[in-house]
Design a protein around this nucleic acid. Structure first.
Length: 489
RNA sequence: GAGCCGUUAGCUCAGUCGGAAGAGCCCCUGCCUUUUAAGCAGGUUGUCGCGCGUUCGAGUCGCGCACGGCUCACCA
């Protein structure tokens, strides 16, 4: 929005002044001998004065003292003080700086390093030139930018004025790098699978729908990577992983963004117990690398990531917190009656599995502060997981929770194509009954499985929530650079 | 989708009972050649989110809308 205001007019006039004097306010070429951090390091390393340097950066502060001026410039490496003196720059050069330059502008400065009376390493300038004039001012220099909406909509201002925000995204990048390094070291192959899919699947969620003109067909933005990664397992890549975006057409909350980052990993000849150990090692490794230890603080709780983590079945966890044994009430009606008898205020659900899950979310999930694996989920809500050999009502699936937050989901993958078809058919019935999130039948995927799929363990981890955990943030918007907001106007 | 809270200068925020729109920073002018939230003196700033209503009079009260935050619902 090109706002026209007095401040902008003033800066435009300064821009014109530079032009009139033959100084390009937006030169194409830049040169420098040191970054800000390198200049400081160079002086620390050999603190003799008069080392010539050429530095570049954004003007962050100007302290005008008459015939001399102190400034700070900043580049991506840090801040550096500049000392401008009329004697050294000449009256014209010195005056022009004050007439034409503002906080927020980019500048190139030549000079030599020295240490001021107060001990700060500083560039004593002998020449300067503009690198890029800014027409709009930066946010308040010490209150920073507080308005949450502006912080998200104009994240560049947030990053400039709130160093702790910058740190969150640096840590996010380090975490993702550490995750990649971990899987690479374990022999996993990083792959990329389609985001535009003719049929969505791999999760229970409503998709975004789009349209391909040339193909004249509807396509969906993926809601998970799962079915394509399993095709790669079938194709003989025994260990694959993908880090990318999924899209779910659902509500927005402090824990949900419609577009979010997911890690999925699949390992042939493994089951969900192997995957639990993989998850423990993953968190141990990245915490050690990025946080320098295994203890973190999340929302006031001290969390110890040291393996092994607690393992408890969903049945035992619910029994412990509600006194209800879900396997004693193995149909919807009797479980619903038991829930009512306990005086628990739950909304009615579509089936036994969903009621179990709701019961778990209400009674157990808020208590799961320390890392915990919850094992063995109802088959109805897990159409892609292998049944437990000893109890076909349940599947070999776990989710893990840290800081009362669901952090990931995994199972021993279903590799029996006949059972898979039955599960999809059951999902079809749920869809008929009005379940908008039921998994669609995927014949192509079943065909792939009919060619033979090895026993496989699979894992999905929400990366945004992982970053929330390691940066102690309670809102997902604080760890996504440009979170989804309503349109302006 | 529901409830509660918020929206005032470029930024951060006050604004009492409905009675002349404010502060600090920024910005502009002047002084100041080792300052660092530099300092001193002076000055400028506004669709009080938008619309309608009540009233002699609305930043303030009422209704509607927009956007944001939190909680809930939704969400493996």
């Amino acid at each position: 929005m090109p706002e026209s205001n007095e401040r902008r007019e003033q800066r435009l006039a300064k821009l014109m002044l530079l032009r009139q004097l033959g100084l390009d306010p937006y030169p194409a070429r830049v040169s420098y001998s040191h970054t800000c951090a390198q200049a400081l390091a160079a002086f620390e390393a050999s603190p003799e004065e008069n080392q010539p340097v050429q530095v570049v950066g954004r003007l962050m502060a100007i302290r005008d003292m008459g015939k001399s001026t102190f400034c700070h410039i900043a580049d991506g490496t840090g801040r550096l003080q500049i000392y401008l003196r009329q004697n050294d720059l000449g009256e014209e050069g010195y005056t022009l700086f004050h007439k034409a330059m503002d906080v927020g502008d980019f500048i190139q400065v030549e000079g030599h390093l020295f240490r001021t009376r107060t001990g700060e390493i500083t560039v004593h300038a002998v020449a300067w030139r503009p690198l890029a004039k800014a027409l709009l001012p930066l946010p308040d220099k010490w209150h920073g930018l507080r308005d949450v909406e502006t912080r998200y909509r104009q994240r560049y201002l947030d990053l400039l004025s709130n160093p702790e925000v910058r740190e969150i995204f640096i840590r996010r990048a380090r975490l993702i790098t550490a995750i990649r390094r971990f899987f690479d070291a374990q022999g996993f192959l990083e792959v990329e699978t389609p985001i535009l899919q003719p049929l969505y699947g791999g999760a229970a969620a409503r998709p975004f729908t789009t349209y391909h003109n040339a193909l004249d067909r509807t396509l969906y933005l993926r809601i998970s990577d799962e079915l394509y990664l399993k095709r790669l397992i079938i194709g003989g890549f025994d260990r694959v992983y993908e880090i990318g975006h999924d899209f779910r057409n659902e509500g927005i909350s402090t824990r949900h963004n419609p577009e979010f980052t997911v890690l999925e990993a699949y390992q042939a000849y493994a089951d969900y117990h192997d995957v639990m150990r993989l998850v423990e090692r993953l968190y141990e490794t990245i915490s050690q690398e990025v946080m320098g230890g295994l203890t973190i603080t999340y929302q006031g709780n001290t969390i110890d990531l040291t393996p092994p983590w607690r393992r408890i079945t969903m049945r035992d966890a619910i029994l412990e917190h509600s006194g209800i044994d879900i396997l004693e009430y193995a149909d919807y009606a009797s479980l619903w009656a038991a829930v009512q008898a306990k005086g628990l205020d739950l909304p009615p659900q579509r089936n036994w599995g969903k009621l179990v899950e709701k019961l778990f979310e209400e009674c157990v999930e808020p208590t799961l502060i320390q890392p915990t694996f919850i094992l063995d989920y109802p088959v109805e809500i897990s159409p892609l997981a292998k049944k437990k050999p000893e109890d076909p009502r349940l599947v070999e699936r776990f989710e893990f929770f840290i800081g009362a937050m669901e952090c990931g989901n995994a199972f021993t993958e279903l590799n029996d194509p006949l059972d898979q078809r039955e599960r999809f058919v059951a999902q079809g019935r749920a869809s008929q009954a009005g379940d908008e999130e039921a998994h669609p039948m995927d014949e192509d995927f079943i065909t792939a499985m009919e060619h033979g799929m090895p026993p496989t363990g699979g894992l999905g981890i929400g990366i945004d929530r992982l970053v929330m955990l390691f940066t102690d943030q309670s809102s997902i918007r604080e760890v996504i650079l440009f979170p989804q907001l309503r349109g302006e106007e």
